[in-house]
Nucleic acid binder design. Structure first.
Lengths: 203, 203
DNA sequence: ATCATTATTATGCAAGTGTATAAATTTATG
DNA sequence: CATAAATTTATACACTTGCATAATAATGAT
């Protein structure tokens, strides 16, 4: 009946972080219960104290990864009263910068992705996040176009959103896997240039 | 000293195909030697007769996947004397159509990708193919620009290549994972539109 | 037909897997 | 301090894993 939770008891988060580190370095195959425990500096039994199964740990790690990505993407976007164009700019810049652009993020993403086709609960975690991003980008693009009095149909603006989303994803992949090719900010610059070309608006 | 190879002895290819099927359906974790053998309709011991280890089978399967992808991408491109613009168009259309655009391809790609960061030989297989594609797209773009007397620096055309490559990758991901959203040819159409916007040339 | 080679199965093994359970330790609270 | 609860470890177990090895079946050459 007591609130005995020791302050600074972040073991659960530590285990999730250890799982992500382990998956990043060893792959999902290599991420056994014992190795994850090693990464966290504990013994394997402890994982079952915080998670009902290894699968649940994996799911928690996936959810934590997506949350971190989306949090980074939303930086400087959400509560500001800035014009749509400026928020769109910032969104593109954020998604094409560290930490979203990094080998770690893309590696973790790739490791988890196949699980979302096998495990229903993993699929649910992914689709939750997917809805979240498209719900950011699409209205931003529509508002930007309206501000510039680009009169196009909803269908057209939806197509533009798909295109810009694709550019972001593709540059994210390339920048994450061959980051040495790009100087600081170059990737975001290319993203903005391409989005400008798609929308026929200087961002 | 005899060429005793029985005609129609495609067991090795069958095993590779079975491995890909198994990875697609069960994930890399689920692709055990025994399950792959099940997919091929043989017993597990046979795999070691054709491959020195499970890892070698995985590598062969990865190489086979990439070869198939690149072969599909090169369709109607290589030996033709068509103008650069037309070949660029066809390249974009091919990479944004079945079978490259499919859940199977993207799933297999995602499953293998992390291994290329862990296993050196897998990394070599990937970089071989990577060089191959960039060596197709980049000259095609440069030639197209020159045909249209777009006078830009090599650096500029290289940047355009990165952008178009990103659009292709992003649309490929989206189309493969949410294919129900797009009608036949719509994805390729969007790819061409975006590439046109990037190059300021009607493709 | 016979025999050597190739292809395939059957079986076993040591190591590693996730998980369960009990013991030990730490922490909070009276 | 004493004691109960929370946390962590230690250990064991059933099962799966990749791989080895011997036995069997199919095939080709003579």
């Amino acid at each position: 009946m007591s609130t005995k939770r020791r302050e600074g008891n972040n073991r659960r988060q530590e285990l999730i972080e250890a799982a992500l580190d382990c998956i990043e370095n060893e792959g999902l195959q290599g991420a056994t219960v014992r190795k994850v425990a090693d990464y966290a500096g504990v013994t394997n039994g402890l994982i079952r104290f915080y998670f009902s199964s290894k699968d649940e740990l994996i799911r928690a790690a996936y959810a934590a990864l997506l949350e971190k990505i989306y949090a980074s993407a939303r930086v400087n976007i959400e509560d500001s009263q800035l014009p749509a164009k400026e928020r769109l700019r910032r969104f593109i810049e954020a998604t094409l910068s560290f930490p979203i652009v990094s080998p770690r993020t893309v590696l973790l993403w790739a490791n988890f992705l196949p699980l979302t086709y096998i495990d229903e609960q993993m699929a649910a975690i992914r689709s939750d996040g997917y809805v979240e991003t498209t719900n950011i980008l699409q209205p931003l693009i529509k508002a930007t176009l309206e501000d510039h009095e680009q009169l196009i149909t909803d269908q057209e603006s939806a197509r533009s959103a798909v295109k810009i989303n694709a550019v972001i994803d593709g540059l994210w992949l390339e920048g994450s896997m061959a980051g040495y090719k790009f100087e600081n900010g170059e990737l975001a610059q290319m993203g903005l240039e391409t989005a400008s070309a798609i929308l026929a608006i200087e961002l």
